[in-house]
Every structure is written in C-alpha cells, then in structure tokens.
Design a protein around this nucleic acid. Structure first.
Lengths: 241, 241
DNA sequence: ATCAGTGTGTCGGGCAGCCGACACAGAACG
DNA sequence: CGTTCTGTGTCGGCTGCCCGACACACTGAT
C-alpha cells in the first residue's frame, strides 16, 4: 500500500525489482501550489509521481511563465533531461495534492543500467514527452491564438477529460490565465478566444469547467494555422482523418 | 573504414558490441537537400547519423515549415520518440552530404534491451534533445524576434561555431530564411533583426557567414524577452544611415 | 554575356494581439 | 457580513511583425 506498486510500469516488473527504490528513495507529499523542485545547476534527484498532478514550468527573467507540460501519474520527471550533467531549468509545482518519490540520481542511473526493461520504459516515456513538446513548438510557430487554444483544449481533453457521449468535460480547475501560459498568450486573448468558441457552439463554459461540444470542429480549427475562418453557421463538416 | 567505428559512443562500447548493426543495418548516403525520411504513420526504422548534417522539420497544412533541430554526427534520430507506436510527423532532410545508418526498429529495440550501457547512452541523447526543444518553447513564447534570433545564433555558435579569439564564426551556410524557420518568424523580420544587430556592432555579416563579435551582449538580448532596449549608448556621432 | 535561381535588403499597409485598466462574480477568511 | 483574493469579461490604444512587392547581388549554367 505504500504506493509504489500502484505505478503500473513498476508493478509490471515483478516484485522485488523496485524494492530498492522503496528503501532508498523518499516519499513526499505536496499540497496544491507547493513547489516540488526549482531550477538548480546541479540536480541530484529525479522524481516519480505516484499520485496527483504536477505542472512543469519555466519563468522568464521578466517573470512571465510558460507551462511546459503536466506530469501524469506514474511518470518520471525532474530533468530526466538533466540525466547528463545539465543544470535543471524548470520548476515543478503541484497543481493538486500529490505524492512523489524522490530518487537519488546515482541510484536511479545504476538501477536502470542493470534493468534493461526499465531503460526501455524510460525511453518510451521520454519519447512521449518529446513528441508532445515538439508538437507544442509546431503549434506555437504556426497558428494564431484561436487555433493554439483549440489544440491545447484537445490535448487537455485527451489527458484529463471525462468523455460523456459526444461532449468531453475538462474539469481540472484550470484558469484562463494558466491556459495562456500553455499557448504563450495572455489571459485576455484567451478569454476572447474562449468566448468566440463558445459563441460558435463549440464549447460550453460552466464556471471553471469546460465542455467540448464539437471536437471535430475544434480539431479543424487546431489544424488551420490561421483560424480566422469566420465560422458563419451551418458550416460544412468534412473529412475525418 | 566502414564508418560505424567512427561514432564515438559506439566505439566506446568495445568491438563486437555493435557488429550486429553492421550486418543488419543499411548504410545510406544523401546529398544536400535530399530527404532521409518523411512522416509516416508506422515508422519501422531509426537512424544513426554517421557523418554530415541533418535537419529535422515539420511542415504545416499551409506549407510553412519549422525546424525542430539539427542532428549532430553520431546521434540517433528519426522518432526515437516514435519508439512506442506513435506515427512519425517530421521530415528529415540532409543539409550537407550525409551518411546514415538505417536500423530496423525491432532490431534496435532488442539490441538496447540486451545492452544497458547503450540504453543509458540513448537516454542521455534524448535528454539533451528534450532540453533543447524545451528551451525552444521557452524562447518562442517569450521574447520578440530580436531576442529569439539572438538565442538561436548563440545555439548555433555553440553547436557548429568555430571560435576565434573573441569572435565566433558560424559558417554552415544557413540562410536567413532557414533562420526564420528556427525562430518561427519570416525572412524579412530576420533580415531586419540581423541588420539591427549588425548596426549595434554585435555581429558582422560577410556573405553567408556570420561572426558573433559580442556574445555577451547577444546573451543579454536573448534573455531580455522584450529586446527593445534601445541600445543607443556610446556611438557619439550617429545620424548615419 | 545572358539568363535563371537563390539569397539579401527595404518599404508600406494592415491587423492580431499585447498591455493597462476597470467592473463584477464567487470563494475563503476573519 | 464585510473584506480580500482570484478569476472572468470587456474595451481602447499602441505596435510588432506578417505579408506582398520590388530591386539588387551573386553564382552557375548555356
């Protein structure tokens, strides 16, 4: 019950494989808003999220922030990148009450070295994240606020949404301001874009929750870089994919 | 001389470790401009760059492109990300005459599984790249064209530059247009920004080569998100142009 | 020399979206 | 029950930069 076995890919390894971790890693709890780690020139731990939700972000010299992504339960985080000798440049902040294992980097590295399947799993995780970040780049470069927003909403839906018939509900208490840090925009612009999407009947907003009513249309907007196609009405939905 | 041993991290493994690759992988040559791979829903190869320079990029639905990065010699590329079961979404194009090994994904995976040190190496490589992409995101979100440009120039200098006393020379025949795809901007804006940097005495342009005269100042600009700090100090007489 | 192809400079118009400001709603707290 | 805080909605002004267009420089073929 001490959590580690609740992590699927660890459990899958078979008992004993991860026992080392339990004995030599530290289990920590954070409540929403607390910082799990901050940038450091010489990180010597990596982390595994047992349960909760962590936000990875960077802060510019002027205080603006970008959200690089969220850590899903079971994922390893905290500069896997910095695996080598790189400094860590990101913050990790709990967005919800979270339980985290802090693992000494040396231990983790040696642990991997002797257990190929784990290495493979780690590689897979990193690949996933890589892909995601690359998409983010693509999206930032192309597309206006409207289409970028569409994209993130879809991603969030996929990761955290509860599907409910046709509509998908995102209810992770994310503010428009935080959305802005995901797409590199401002609170106001996000607000405007959300309003527009609502008016187009693509999504419904009730308080802090967002419901995606028409993912198909949303997807179209996300793809269209310059999302300014004034959507009159009685639009034409087309191609699936 | 058949190349594989020229790759440092492979050579370091000791003879025989990578012999399998030689027998079951394919060695390919590309001249500048040729496509190494294109997006595919079901990639079944990964690649290792023996020698040359490869550019990884994406193309939007409207035909615009973003450069995600360049592959350094010895690096593994081609949707390591797609390691899992993801489709490949990027293009790889040779920027210079290049020699590449194409390795069947299955082989590579099994090869890793049985050789932990390699897994570690791969992880390291991915980490590096991850870090780079994350920085790219940060840069795209913050900063105007000027500061973004400054950032890329510094990166390019670090990766491909020849240092020469104080100045660092970037001479990889990169066009302003291509620079634009690195920072998500347009040829014209890049041109203007380069001009400004030149006027400020921060860099000198001679033909297709770029010389960084004052990396310190460049670094400052890169960090300052809104690089509009009118740098008009010094320069007693001006009016000029 | 001539022409095509590719990259570099420049200019003006137009607009998306950033910024600052302000009003208002709900939630947490004393 | 106010007070404070955080988040949502909106507006107008200002501007960076995208876009389209055009001239020039350089290089390599014919």
């Amino acid at each position: 019950m001490e959590g580690l076995e609740s992590i699927a890919w660890l459990a899958a390894l078979g008992a004993g494989e991860w026992e080392v971790l339990r004995t030599r890693a530290t289990r920590l709890s954070y409540s929403a808003g607390e910082t799990v780690f901050a940038p450091t020139p010489d990180p010597h731990s990596i982390y595994i999220l047992e349960q909760g939700r962590i936000r990875i972000l960077r802060i510019s010299s002027t205080g603006d922030e970008v959200t690089l992504g969220y850590v899903a339960e079971g994922e390893v985080f905290g500069e896997l990148p910095g695996f080598g000798d790189h400094p860590r440049e990101s913050f990790a902040v709990a967005r919800a009450p979270s339980t985290v294992w802090r693992v000494p980097l040396t231990l983790f590295r040696e642990w991997i070295s002797s257990r190929p399947p784990i290495a493979l799993e780690i590689t897979r995780q990193m690949g996933d994240r890589m892909k995601r970040v690359e998409s983010r780049v693509e999206n930032l470069v192309f597309g206006d606020v409207r289409s970028r927003l569409a994209k993130v909403l879809l991603e969030l839906a996929e990761d955290f949404g509860r599907t409910n018939g046709d509509t998908c509900i995102i209810d992770i208490g994310i503010s428009q301001g935080e959305l802005a840090t995901l797409i590199g925009s401002t609170r106001q612009s996000v607000n405007a874009a959300m309003g527009a999407l609502k008016d187009d009947g693509i999504l419904r907003l009730s308080g802090r929750r967002t419901e995606l009513l028409d993912q198909e249309r949303l997807r179209t907007i996300a793809r269209s870089n310059r999302g300014q196609e004034r959507e009159k009405s009685g639009a034409s939905d087309e191609s699936g994919d």
